[in-house]
């Protein structure tokens, strides 16, 4: 597969490491959330046949974490964003 890196353009997926669902960005705060909420965060995922927003790490590249919107059936990639931007848009800071 080819991932169109927002900074570096088209790069071979071989350079990346796949992690999983984008929702891994949505980590609860450990000082306020309990075990149930963390359990959902760590284990519960949707597993769509179709569009999926997923985390890829450009390990053999610029070390950017990316959010890749990919169709799991056709492998078509429709959007690639820097995960840091996505995290900030979700309100994550420090």
């Amino acid at each position: 597969m080819i991932i169109h890196h927002p900074i570096l353009g088209p790069r071979d997926a071989q350079e990346f490491v796949y992690l999983g669902d984008e929702s891994l960005i949505d980590r609860p705060d450990g000082m306020s959330a309990g075990i149930e909420e963390f359990h959902d965060y760590a284990y519960n995922r949707t597993n769509p046949a179709g569009e999926h927003r997923e985390l890829w790490y450009h390990e053999q590249g610029d070390r950017s974490w990316l959010v890749v919107t990919r169709n799991t059936v056709t492998h078509e990639i429709t959007k690639v964003e820097l995960a840091r931007d996505v995290a900030r848009a979700k309100g994550r800071t420090k």
Binding site: L19, W65, R84, R88, T93
Partner: peptide
């Protein structure tokens, strides 16, 4: 890799 994940995805600022 994990540290980069924490730095970019969890605590981006």
């Amino acid at each position: 890799r994990h540290l980069e994940f924490c730095r970019q995805c969890l605590w981006p600022d």
